[in-house]
């Protein structure tokens, strides 16, 4: 059965320079589409992928990724904002790789657009008020 899934990969520092996605495509016959990549040398990398292929290939591919030491997050998770804790300071604005936080210019209130959110989770710990939460 052909499937399509969106996943977030967190690469530990030691794997940043490995050709992992190349192997994923070649050895497991999966088509990939990179939705977002943030890889800095000597630091953890982040990749958001859409994977298309047969279920059995997908399962084997995910197993391969897990064995390499990559942490995989499914986009079936959701990042939500705890409105009671958010103070609209805006510290999240430049942390979010997809621009999901937008300042409304006249009020300077911060709008969180969950359709732009790729659930990378970078805002969760960067939010000084801990207003961003991961929901499963």
């Amino acid at each position: 059965m052909a499937i399509s899934r969106r996943i977030v990969l967190h690469f530990p520092e030691r794997l940043v320079e490995q050709p992992i996605i190349c192997r994923l495509a070649r050895d497991f016959n999966l088509e990939f589409n990179i939705l977002k990549a943030a890889v800095t040398p000597n630091e953890e990398g982040l990749l958001v992928l859409e994977l298309n292929g047969e279920q059995k290939d997908y399962d084997r591919g995910i197993q391969y990724l897990t064995e390499t030491g990559i942490r995989i997050q499914s986009l079936s998770q959701n990042v939500i904002r705890n409105e009671e804790r958010c103070t609209h300071c805006g510290a999240c604005i430049t942390i979010c790789p997809t621009g999901a936080f937008i300042i409304e210019p006249s009020t300077r209130l911060v709008d969180f657009s969950d359709t732009k959110c790729i659930v990378c989770g970078l805002c969760i710990k960067a939010c000084p008020l801990r207003a961003m939460e991961l929901k499963f």
Binding site: G90, A91, T94, I95, I103, R108, P128
Partner: peptide, 25 residues
Amino acid sequence: LKSGRIEVQGKEVPTASLSSYPRAV
């Protein structure tokens, strides 16, 4: 700073605040 971008060493740099302006208002 509040425009969202400043220039530093010839590079355009996005800005963010740690202090809440709406709450100050």
